[in-house]
Design a protein around this nucleic acid. Structure first.
Length: 804
DNA sequence: AGCACGCCGACT
DNA sequence: GTCGGCGTGCTC
């Protein structure tokens, strides 16, 4: 092939198309779509993805491809196609779609440097430039970019004294170690071994070792096994007996850990019934979407494991998605125990290099199972046999940046391609999924019994308003305290859950009601006791905590809300004998801290585990018999039509942590809205009724799953501008879409200002709108120039999860 | 996105 | 006359 169509790494409307390049002779046989290349683009060089190769082009003057970055394509034909689909579905640039499918380490970094042209003396340069070239002939652009001499540099560049060179590096490369192999055939080496001088004892040892080893051995290994230094090895290399090579090694984050192989458990009748249709699909290479609706502790994971096992037996591969937050060591352990080294793990806790290595294992077909968070859905497998999404309702499956995709949609798309089943698993499915299951679009696989037949925990709802009336101003109700004391006495464990979302610890003046808020964002500041500072969680702004109110100068400043730190303190006051482990962003930010704290709790080193969201998922400690939810309704008041659903899911999830084993569990839910149906029904473990209730509301208000949503958010420094642009967009959409579509807006976004930029939005509720995508594309096109020139931003989220 | 090209105001 | 402001348009 003579020409290649390349999508270049420039995310902009005007460059969001393929550019044709000629393929230099030496690569004509090798280059295929899906490879990364470096191409000249204008005056610079950029990375790009080859999407097509062809014999001819309409372009008159093509430039040649400058460099080939891959010998095996990093995107399979399927993934290339998937990229185009993503572009259409999420309205993102092609380059963004491709980039999101690869580990971040493969994204190009650009740099510039300035070279002294050959034959030019530094004395010819501008006086300001000269000192830079005293001892060198090249200067990095970044070193002079901000200096006042930039202009002088420009001048010398124009004069031709200096040359600008554009560099592209695809960093995060393979990690290699120095390794050795025999430089000659073994027989030959055996003979030469005899001829080595007597005193070369160590060299002989090394050679003998090499003769019995696999082809390539890391130098480090030779040194430790034979207890020699590098000297004899060097000697053999210089004699031409050994050859130095680079050996690619993987950073294995789970090395040095023993996994005891586990065998499949025998399934309960319910599990067998659930797995049957899945196995049938695997057998017949058929595609279906299954919604596995199973209460906590019903043994979903075992069904996943055995389905995957079946897929592996067919020589195919499996993708298993779990929410980031529950990608716990416990979870990984279960997979490693069952599938050993066939498993790659991908989550955000890995370094860029580690993620790259896991990705490489997949690409090189060294593993056949990947367990990972959202982005693992793009694993470059070529024979996918099953895709599983655990905790299907989790919001982390929706990416909140471009491309704003939902892993579930990608999973279904990929599974259609591979003709394989998708399993969505949850104890509290999203209404969207459950509704589809009701309609028969998805196949429902119910698991209604807990595996050990243990009853679901008894749930008590405590009305905190009554507590307050009875004079209890603390954050622990009498009932909860009593139950905690009971467990402490019995040496059982307790999990306390604090939903920090909503109003977290903020500060208010009791006299005038003043609440310190961020000067750049419309959001109140959060109090951080540790540094005694107020911080903005959106832009990072911080200030010292005030001791007097800046408005009325009163010193009645009060700290409201209850962060985990404050709960811990109070717990210490009421129950000084209790040992507490606190888990939140502050205590788990260090790598591995999360795991360490959980292990400590598992070992019984503390009796109470206190934490936020992150302790709600996937934890399983046999000794936990009480779960306390400190304030169940903080989430309920969020400006989000899914607030009730999220509350129900969270409460159900948290309750599931209690009494999973032989000890019976109890749950105490503290709330200011005890009569709310989501709280009532969660306490009764009644998903079905919740589903029906919530569906009525969704239908009445025209929300999903009855209507689809699209959210257009406009932001700019100037309020008037934002309002007028949002208004025009709303108007345009009103006129383009059918009368059945509901167009709300312009309205201020729930967070009306972030980082000094005002935010307004237009929300569209629609059912069938073939014009939707074209209309939105048109809108973006119309404001293209303003978006560049005036830093106006318009973001479009189709099927948004967060209204913020 | 960059970057060059090009056309106007204010300085050596 | 030249330097430098940033509007306009292109990148195979």
């Amino acid at each position: 092939m003579n020409f290649a169509s390349v999508i270049v790494d420039v995310a902009a409307k005007q460059t969001d198309r393929a550019f044709d390049y000629s393929i230099p002779q030496q690569w004509r046989e090798i280059l295929v779509p899906g490879m990364r290349v470096i191409v000249p683009f204008g005056p610079r060089k950029v990375q790009g993805f080859v999407v097509d190769v062809k014999l001819e082009t309409d372009v008159k003057r093509t430039k040649p491809i400058a460099e080939l970055l891959d010998l095996t394509p990093v995107l399979t034909p399927e993934l290339l196609e998937l990229g185009h689909w993503l572009t259409e579905k999420t309205l993102c640039f092609k380059i963004s779609a491709f980039q999101v499918m690869l580990p971040a380490a493969m994204k190009a970094k650009y740099d510039k440097k300035i070279l002294l042209q050959p034959g030019v003396e530094s004395s010819q340069l501008h006086s300001k430039v000269q000192p830079y070239f005293q001892h060198t002939s090249e200067v990095m652009w970044s070193d002079i970019e901000k200096s006042e001499s930039v202009n002088s540099f420009y001048r010398d560049i124009q004069k031709g004294l200096l040359e600008v060179v554009y560099l592209v590096k695809s960093k995060g490369n393979k990690k290699t170690v120095k390794a050795l192999r025999l430089a000659q055939p073994p027989e030959h080496v055996k003979q030469l071994l005899q001829e080595l001088p007597k005193q070369a004892e160590k060299q002989k040892q090394v050679l003998e070792f090499m003769l019995v080893q696999e082809e390539v051995v890391a130098q480090r290994d030779i040194m430790t096994v034979l207890n020699v230094t590098s000297a004899p090895i060097k000697g053999l290399v210089s004699k031409g007996l050994l050859h130095e090579v680079d050996m690619e090694i993987y950073r294995d984050p789970y090395a040095n850990r023993d996994f005891i192989p586990s065998k499949p458990f025998s399934l309960t009748d319910e599990q067998s019934a659930a797995i049957k249709p899945i196995l049938r699909d695997i057998e017949n290479h058929e595609h279906d979407v299954f919604l596995m609706y199973g209460v906590t502790g019903s043994g979903k994971t075992e069904v996943y494991l055995q389905s995957i096992d079946q897929v592996l037996k067919q020589g195919k591969e499996a993708i298993m998605l779990v929410p980031e937050i529950s990608l716990t060591p416990q979870m990984v352990k279960r997979f490693k125990e069952r599938f050993g080294s066939k498993v790659a793990v991908m989550h955000s806790g890995l370094s860029a290099g580690e993620k790259y290595d896991e990705w490489r294992k997949i690409q090189r077909k060294e593993v056949s199972v990947v367990v990972g968070a959202r982005s693992a859905i793009f694993a470059p497998f070529q024979h996918v046999g099953i895709i599983i999404i655990d905790e299907e309702h989790e919001t982390s499956y929706k990416q909140e940046e471009n491309p704003r995709y939902h892993a579930r949609d990608v999973a279904i798309k990929r599974a259609e391609f591979h003709n394989c089943p998708v399993i969505l698993g949850s104890a509290t499915p999203t209404l969207e999924s459950f509704a589809r299951a009701q309609k028969g679009v998805y196949k429902l696989l119910p698991l209604r019994e807990r595996m050990n037949k243990s009853a679901l925990p008894k749930v008590d709802i405590v009305d905190m308003r009554e507590e307050l009336r009875d004079g209890n101003r603390s954050m622990f109700s009498t009932l909860l305290l009593e139950k905690i004391r009971e467990r402490l006495e019995r040496r059982e464990q307790i999990v306390l859950f604090l939903n920090k979302r909503g109003h977290s610890s903020f500060v208010m003046c009791r006299d005038c009601g003043y609440v310190p808020s961020c000067p750049h964002c419309e959001i109140s500041l959060t109090y951080h006791r540790y540094q005694n500072r107020m911080k903005c969680h959106y832009c990072g702004y911080e200030e010292l905590t005030q001791t007097a109110c800046p408005e009325c100068e009163s010193d009645h400043i009060r700290f409201f809300g209850s962060g985990t730190q404050k709960v811990e303190e109070e717990l210490g006051k009421v129950l000084p004998e209790a040992s507490v482990i606190r888990m939140d962003v502050d205590t788990t930010s260090r790598k591995g801290a999360h795991e360490k704290l959980l292990t400590k709790f598992g070992n019984g080193e503390a009796q109470i585990l206190l934490g936020t969201q992150m302790i709600a998922k996937g934890l399983d400690f046999p000794n936990v018999t009480l779960v306390g939810v400190l304030s169940a309704d903080t989430m309920l008041n969020l400006p989000d039509f899914r607030a009730a659903e999220k509350t129900f899911q969270l409460l159900t999830q948290v309750s599931g942590r209690a009494g999973r084993h032989h000890l019976p569990g109890e749950v105490v839910i503290q709330t200011y809205a005890p009569e709310h149906y989501s709280i009532q029904l969660a306490s009764q473990h009644d998903y079905d009724t919740f589903y029906l209730e919530e569906m009525k509301l969704r239908q009445a208000h025209r929300y999903p799953p009855f209507f689809y949503l699209a959210l257009v958010t406009v932001s700019h420094e100037n309020v008037a501008k934002v309002v007028s642009v949002t208004g025009k967009i709303s108007q345009y959409l009103r006129q383009k879409l059918s009368p059945q579509a509901v167009i709300l807006g312009p309205v201020a976004s729930p967070i009306a200002k972030i980082k000094d930029r005002y935010r307004y939005q237009c929300m569209i509720k629609y059912k069938l709108e073939p014009n939707m995508i074209p209309a939105l594309k048109y809108v973006v096109n119309q404001y293209q120039d303003q978006m560049q020139q005036e830093q106006l931003t318009i973001t479009i989220d189709l099927h948004p999860y967060s209204m913020m």
